[in-house]
């Protein structure tokens, strides 16, 4: 039996800054995971990933990351995505600094 689809976001690195970006429902990119488009279905996920990959001159290494819906928007399910969404734990650098 195919495994049920778990919610996803499209994420990548910004070509210029190298920082973590997420695809929004409005076809833009955001630095905040909570503002990312929550993708609920496999076919749509593949389309959104293709859309991201069609922008190789601003976006590097796009992939689908697993998330769960939260009150403020998508939330990470894995600690790697949690670190990407916040920043390193030894200094208040990265996204946590800009919040």
């Amino acid at each position: 039996m195919p495994r049920p689809f778990t919610p996803k976001v499209v994420t990548a690195s910004d070509l210029l800054e190298g920082d973590v970006i997420y695809l929004t429902a409005e076809d833009g990119w955001t630095r905040q995971l909570t503002e990312a488009e929550l993708i609920q279905d496999e076919a749509h996920a593949q389309l959104r990933l293709l859309f991201a990959e069609s922008q190789p001159n601003s976006v590097v290494g796009a992939y689908l990351a697993e998330v769960k819906p939260g009150p403020r928007g998508p939330e990470p399910t894995h600690f790697r995505e949690a670190f990407r969404a916040t920043g390193p734990s030894n200094y208040a650098h990265g996204k946590q600094a800009g919040a």
Binding site: S13, E17, G18, V20, R80, R84, H93, G94
Partner: peptide
């Protein structure tokens, strides 16, 4: 030239 793309940045 020693440039990586890491978790949060180059």
């Amino acid at each position: 030239n020693g440039v990586y793309l890491q978790l949060h940045a180059y």
